[in-house]
Design a protein around this nucleic acid. Structure first.
Length: 924
RNA sequence: GGGUGGUUAGCUCAGUUGGGAGAGCGGCGGCCUUACAAGCCGUAGGUCACAGGUUCGACCCCUGUACCACCCACCA
């Protein structure tokens, strides 16, 4: 074995072996419990970012954990066609060649998208493999593949026939750049600095004017009314009068509506029903005219005065403000912060715009989806996300599902020339069902469905629905959905609604919600901030120049380039080292406490790379001592276990319990912590050291040596299995080398049983003994460290006082103690016997004395003792105070009081002894 | 405006029925001790945001305040 762990030497090879041998497939054991996870399908043309890395690592840990437990385990993998995102990418590529999609035409454009998918669609799945993810690749799906096409048509038709899908004309969120409607969720409302324009609107009778305040003066050309509050005394006398609208010279009424806030602005609101959601509602209430003044590009259309026709909306804004000012109608302009709606993909300001769209009626579907969480058929982890889910679901609006895009599932609706609409699974079905002859021309709806409509079917669409397949019966509902809180509404809610309605069961039993991966300062990672880390770079490493290159190419805002370059050079002067997949995964787990965002610091991954190396080297030690030796691999029983052996075996049982509990409750941070503590803190730091005196002692009995070798190798083999779900590669590599010596076998660690604690192996006696031994050793080390005694220097140790039990423990551990504390000798003094001037430590009632002759600095020892005494004095005061308080003694449980009393006695005795030592010292 | 989460060592975070504050990284001191310098040994460092309350006893339970983050909402 290499002296240091080299992840790149083994990872790819093991991954290929696993995949080629079909280890990722379900066991097919129908007697076993089923366990399934449906991957949140990443965008087919995307590439892996840190969020994916985190999420996939969690899923893989769960999948491997359950697979090892013998469950019939399916991890369903696949990718999403991601309508808008993908279409935008391909459009951008075409634009680089100087071609627009309209020049190309719909069919050719779609061909291009498929071509692009062919080309780049493998990126993210290749990267998933680098993470060690173990989904069943043979079942990989795509949300636009043949089967999904069928499922989507079927769902649409059923919902339509049940009256849950309808077509309607109303205001939608219109993206003037992408030329499509988008759902409420795809609109981001961010606060921005803007202005509040106060405009004078003259009364039609010439008797004066009133002032309206608006953030969007250009929409005044579409005003249908001015509204005031019905009880606003300032304006009551104007009700029923008309305004002569400037610039367009239309007359519009002054109306009363209690939507108006008297406190805001002037208390007068201009009403533009065609371009504002509230105004639209008010327009409905008051039967106002709806005047659409914008075209699909959000330029002014032919219903405005000629001067403004064709103007871009923001150019029109300043023109109109100028014109009003020239007319003396601009009262004032105030700075004003407002929420500006922007498309989450395009970034442009969204316009409320009146169009025909398809909607899902959500009320009834949402009620079911709420009930399923309320009655516990679906559980959120952490639980508080249920509130977020409820509050959104209870206030849900109908879902606009049509998109004016080309890439996506075409809506299965056809129109005849009269404009009648027919919905069906195919044109043929429509014609048959409605007896439409060949002479009638039918034209299919041009629109496609919102991507989330098809991904909403993911849990059952991937399993063969609408056919009744064995997979559906085995693996649906899925066990757990692992997802970020940011898509609870986009995806989780929609899956709940669609699945409950169509499948009559929940899509998953548990929703595990994880946080966002941020940079080490808590900033969101983004290209424009230049703080993006690529999981693959953390695995393979990257030199500084390539990293700078990567972070500064293809930027939307090239002016940030220099800053990003500087910042990158400062943060990673050496580039990024190759840490390997297991270290990356372990970092994710260690940071995955529930529901919190995680700040990813490269320092952490380095620590876990070191942990991998620790495991690697511990294994080298074990193998050096076990290879070619009898380690009980034939399961013979002629061996004897030392206290240390029994102790580490007992600790292992505890660790198995902790890790299992953590995994079962999605506490990957606790699981990783428990493993780390056991492997590094117990197995490596103590047990390996304790094994040396046995193995290196030529006089030790063969049975004892065999017992130690057996324990070394078997504990190692077990902890590898225990750690495998978190760190698949290194555990496989080492396991292959140790399995035979550990009396085990099999093709791969990933198919081995997951360790289970054995109650008979808990050993309190051994734990107490080793606990004592550790204390003594630590006492000596402390003296050595504080007194600056070289670790190489062998020193004598005197023991004084202590119980008969201390003597017993000493007898059992004498040789271990001598070796590990690097002692020259150990001698015992009777309780009253005087000792030479020494440095002292206490273990219970027993004094550890290291004679000072030639070794110890009196002053240093005094200081050390004084420090101990001060600490004890402080604790003593507190405990004494507690026990002197009659209320405590009366009211606290007897056992607590007894415990405090014991504590006091121990502390008092230690205190006295140390004081005595200090006095002796000062007498020198 | 409503809601959720957070505030613990220099940094990142654990702390699960309220009973002597922990880890990793970083710092400091000492070690190339025959698995590992990606290591070993030792060590310093905290009014658990603040103010009240409940309790014999509060990092933990209750109330309020401050600050941070996020979500939702029709103030032009």
């Amino acid at each position: 074995m290499d002296k240091t762990y080299q992840p790149n030497a083994i990872e790819q090879q093991w991954y290929n072996t696993w995949e080629e041998n079909g280890y990722f497939k379900p066991s097919g054991d129908t007697e076993a419990r089923s366990y399934s996870i449906m991957i949140p399908p990443p965008n087919v043309t995307g590439s892996l970012h840190m969020g994916h890395g985190f999420q996939e690592s969690i899923m893989d840990a769960l999948i491997r954990y359950h697979r090892m437990q013998g469950d019939n385990t399916l991890w369903q993998v696949g990718t999403d066609h991601a309508g808008i995102a993908t279409q935008m990418v391909v459009e951008r590529l075409l634009a680089a060649e100087g071609v627009s999609r309209h020049q190309l035409g719909r069919d050719k454009f779609i061909d291009k998208v498929w071509e692009w998918k062919q080309q780049s669609g493998g990126t993210i799945t290749r990267q998933l493999r680098r993470l060690g993810a173990s989904p069943d690749w043979s079942r990989e799906r795509f949300t636009m593949d043949e089967g999904f096409y069928k499922a989507v048509q079927e769902v649409f038709v059923r919902l339509y026939e049940d009256g849950l899908i309808y077509r309607g004309k109303r205001l939608v969120n219109w993206d003037p750049k992408l030329h499509t409607a988008i759902s409420d969720l795809e609109v981001l409302n961010e606060e921005e600095q803007g202005h509040l324009w106060h405009l004078r609107y003259p009364l039609a009778d010439g008797s004066g004017h009133l002032v309206v305040a608006t953030t969007r003066p250009e929409t005044m050309l579409g005003d249908s009314a001015v509204a005031v509050h019905p009880e606003d005394e300032r304006y009551r006398h104007l009700l029923g009068k008309n305004i002569k609208l400037p610039l367009s010279d239309r007359e519009i009424p002054i109306i009363a509506d209690d939507y108006v806030d008297r406190e805001f602005g002037t208390g007068c609101v201009k009403i533009t029903p065609a371009h504002d959601f509230n105004d639209y509602e008010m327009g409905q209430r008051h039967s106002l005219e709806i005047i659409n003044i914008l075209d699909a590009d959000a330029n002014l259309n032919e219903s405005v005065p000629e001067k403004y026709r064709g103007m871009e909306r923001f150019a029109a804004r300043s023109q109109i403000v100028d014109d009003l000012e020239a007319l003396g109608l601009l009262e004032k302009v105030e700075p004003h912060t407002l929420k500006v709606p922007r498309g989450d993909r395009s970034g442009v300001v969204i316009e409320p715009w009146l169009t025909d769209q398809w909607y899902v009626r959500t009320q009834q579907l949402a009620a079911e989806a709420i009930a399923a969480v309320e009655d516990g058929r679906v559980n959120f982890v952490p639980k508080n996300y249920e509130n977020m889910y409820f509050s959104w679901m209870r206030d849900i609006q109908d879902w606009c599902i049509s998109r004016q895009l080309w890439w996506g599932h075409r809506i299965p609706a056809w129109y005849d020339e009269e404009g009648n609409v027919y919905v069906g699974r195919s044109e043929e079905e429509v014609r048959r069902k409605h007896s439409l002859g060949a002479d009638i021309t039918l034209r299919q709806d041009e629109d496609v469905l919102d991507t989330w409509f098809s991904s909403g079917l993911w849990t059952f669409g991937t399993l063969g629905w609408p056919e009744d397949t064995p997979e559906l019966r085995d693996f649906h509902p899925s066990s757990v959905l692992v997802t970020g809180f940011d898509i609870i509404f986009f995806w989780v809610a929609r899956m709940m609604m669609l699945t409950l309605y169509l499948k009559k069961e929940v899509p998953f039993h548990t929703v595990y919600v994880h946080g966002l991966v941020r940079d080490s300062h808590g900033q969101k990672m983004s290209k424009s901030k230049g703080n993006v880390l690529d999981p693959i770079d953390l695995i393979d490493g990257i030199d500084l120049e390539s990293l700078v290159q990567k972070r500064t190419t293809g930027m939307m805002q090239p002016h940030l380039r220099e800053k990003i370059e500087q910042q990158t050079r400062k943060e990673f002067p050496q580039g990024i080292a190759a840490y390997g997949t297991d270290a990356l995964r372990y970092t994710y787990y260690s940071l995955a406490s529930t529901g919190r965002d995680i700040k990813f610091d490269v320092g952490r991954i380095e620590g876990f790379r070191n942990f991998c190396n620790k495991i690697w080297n511990a294994s080298r030690y074990v193998l050096q001592n076990c290879e070619g030796q009898d380690c009980g691999q034939d399961n013979s029983s002629d061996f004897e276990l030392t206290l240390a052996d029994r102790w580490i075996i007992s600790q292992l049982q505890r660790t198995e319990t902790t890790v299992r509990e953590a995994m079962d409750s999605y506490r990957f941070d606790l699981a990783s912590q428990a493993l780390y503590d056991f492997i590094w803190g117990e197995y490596c730091s103590w047990y390996l050291e304790l094994s040396k005196p046995v193995l290196w002692d030529e006089t030790a009995a063969a049975a004892v040596k065999k017992g130690t070798r057996r324990t070394l190798i078997r504990v190692l083999e077990t902890l590898l299995r225990l750690a495998h779900p978190l760190m698949p590669f290194i555990t496989e590599e080492i396991w292959q080398r140790v399995k035979t010596l550990a009396g085990s076998g099999g093709e791969s660690i990933m198919l081995q049983p997951y360790p289970q604690p054995n109650a008979n192996k808990f050993d309190q006696q051994a734990e107490a003994a080793v606990g004592w031994l550790k204390q003594v050793i630590e006492g000596v080390r402390n003296i050595r460290g504080e007194m600056n005694i070289s670790p190489a220097k062998k020193i004598p140790l005197l023991l004084r006082g202590g119980s008969s039990r201390d003597r017993e423990l000493l007898d059992q551990a004498r040789s271990l103690l001598t070796k590990l504390a690097s002692l020259k000798s150990i001698s015992c003094l009777d309780a009253g016997e005087s000792a030479p001037a020494s440095a002292t430590a206490l273990v219970g009632d027993m004094e550890l004395l290291v004679p000072m002759a030639g070794l110890i600095d009196v002053n240093a020892e005094s200081t050390r003792l004084q420090k101990e005494i001060d600490k004890l004095a402080k604790d003593l005061t507190r405990v004494q105070g507690k026990l002197n308080n009659p209320k405590f003694v009366d009211k606290a449980p007897a056992e607590v009081v007894a415990k405090e009393k014991n504590k006091l006695a121990d502390m008092q005795s230690a205190y006295d002894r140390l004081r005595e030592k200090l006095q002796q010292l000062s007498g020198l």
